[in-house]
C-alpha cells in the first residue's frame, strides 16, 4: 500500500494502522533529511499551503511552517487576531477567499471541535487538522507515538499513561486512538472532575492515583492543565493539583522502574511536571518536538501527492 486511505487528516479516528505505519515510514526518511546539512527537498515546490490559526499556537504553527518550508512549499500564515474574522466573516467565506488565491492545502487550528470536518464538507481542498477545540490533534498524537516507537522500537504492547486534564485535551483523545490502533495499552489518570464521563468506553484504563499509574506504565505523557478552556473550577487550587498529580524527581526515583516522560507542550513547570523531571534523561520532550517536523512533513507529503485526483 502506498497511499493514505483518507483525503484529509481530520483526526486519528479516521486512520487505520497501515496509514499510521505509512506515515511513520515516510517520517523516518524525512527525519534523515532534516538532519542533513541541506535540510530541504523539492517535493512540494508547486504547492501553496495556508496555515490558518484561529487559536494561539507556538510549537504546532512553527513546526508546520518549518515542515512546509523543508518540503519547498509556498506558505501563507494567518492568525485570527488582526484578521477579518473579527469583522464577522464566516469560516467558509474566509477559507473560500483564501482558496480563490489558488491555495492547495489548508492547515487549520480552530477552537471549535469539528471545525476541520465541517470545512472538509464545504471546501474543495486538502485539510489538515492542527487541533480543533477539545476534539483531536492528530499530528501531535502521531509524533507522540513516533517518539515512543523511536525510543522502544515499537509501540505495540507498550503501556502508556496519559496524566492530567483529559476532559479538555484534544491531545489525549488523539493519543488514545493512535496508541490503541498501534496496539499499545492506554491508561488515563487525573482527578475525577477532569475525566470525561464515558472515557472507559474507549477501552482505556482509568486510574486516579498517580503513583499506581506510574508504576503500571512504561511511558507517561504529562498534559498541561488547560485553564483557558475551563469554564468552572475543576479543582481547589493549582497547588493541590500539583501535589496530587504533579510529577517530581522524588516521585520518579521512587518508582519500581525507569519510565519515559513525554509532554506535548507548553509545559507549566512546577504544575504538572517539575523542571528536574522535564530536563532529566528520562524525558523525550525535545525529541517529540524534533519528530514533529518529520511527522508533519510526512503527512503533508502523503496528502499532497494525491492533490490532483
Amino acid at each position: 500500500m502506498s497511499q493514505l486511505s483518507v483525503k484529509h487528516l481530520l483526526g486519528i479516528k479516521d486512520l487505520n494502522e497501515q496509514d499510521i505505519q505509512l506515515i511513520f515510514k515516510t517520517a523516518d526518511n524525512f527525519k534523515d533529511v532534516i538532519n542533513r546539512p541541506i535540510k530541504k527537498v523539492p517535493s512540494l515546490r508547486d504547492i501553496t499551503i495556508a496555515n490558518l490559526f484561529f487559536e494561539n499556537s507556538t510549537r504546532t504553527k512553527l513546526s508546520f511552517e518549518l515542515a512546509e518550508k523543508r518540503l519547498s512549499a509556498d506558505t501563507i500564515s494567518f492568525s485570527a487576531s488582526g484578521s477579518s474574522i473579527s469583522k464577522g466573516e464566516t469560516l467558509i467565506d474566509t477559507v473560500n477567499n483564501i482558496l480563490a488565491m489558488k491555495v492547495d492545502m489548508i492547515v487549520m487550528r480552530h477552537p471549535n471541535p469539528g471545525a476541520g470536518v465541517f470545512l472538509s464538507k464545504h471546501i474543495n481542498s486538502i485539510i489538515i487538522n492542527a487541533g480543533d477545540g477539545a476534539h483531536e490533534h492528530p499530528t501531535q498524537a502521531l509524533l507522540d507515538a513516533f517518539s515512543i516507537r523511536e525510543k522502544y522500537g515499537d509501540v505495540a504492547g507498550k503501556k502508556v499513561v496519559i496524566v492530567g486534564d483529559i476532559l479538555h485535551s484534544r491531545v489525549a483523545l488523539s493519543n488514545i486512538f493512535c496508541l490503541q490502533k498501534l496496539g499499545a495499552e492506554v491508561m488515563v489518570c487525573g482527578p475525577t472532575t477532569l475525566m470525561p464521563r464515558y472515557i472507559s468506553s474507549l477501552g482505556v484504563k482509568v486510574e486516579h492515583d498517580l503513583v499506581k499509574a506510574l508504576n503500571w506504565c512504561e511511558v507517561a505523557n504529562m498534559l498541561r492543565i488547560q485553564l483557558e478552556r475551563q469554564d468552572i473550577k475543576y479543582f481547589p487550587s493549582l497547588r493541590e493539583y500539583s501535589m496530587l498529580y504533579g510529577l517530581d524527581k522524588k516521585l520518579l526515583d521512587s518508582l519500581n522502574k525507569p519510565i519515559t516522560i513525554m509532554h506535548p507542550g507548553p509545559i507549566n513547570r512546577g504544575v504538572e511536571i517539575t523542571s528536574d523531571v522535564a530536563d532529566s534523561e528520562h524525558s523525550i520532550i525535545l525529541n517529540q518536538v524534533e519528530n514533529g517536523v518529520a511527522i508533519r512533513m510526512a503527512v503533508l507529503y502523503l496528502l499532497a501527492g494525491r492533490a490532483d485526483k
Partner: peptide, 12 residues
C-alpha cells in the same frame, strides 16, 4: 510527484 496515481514512498 502529483502526476501519478499513487504516492511514491521513499526508501532509505
Amino acid at each position: 510527484f502529483r502526476r501519478r496515481d499513487d504516492v511514491l514512498i521513499p526508501q532509505s
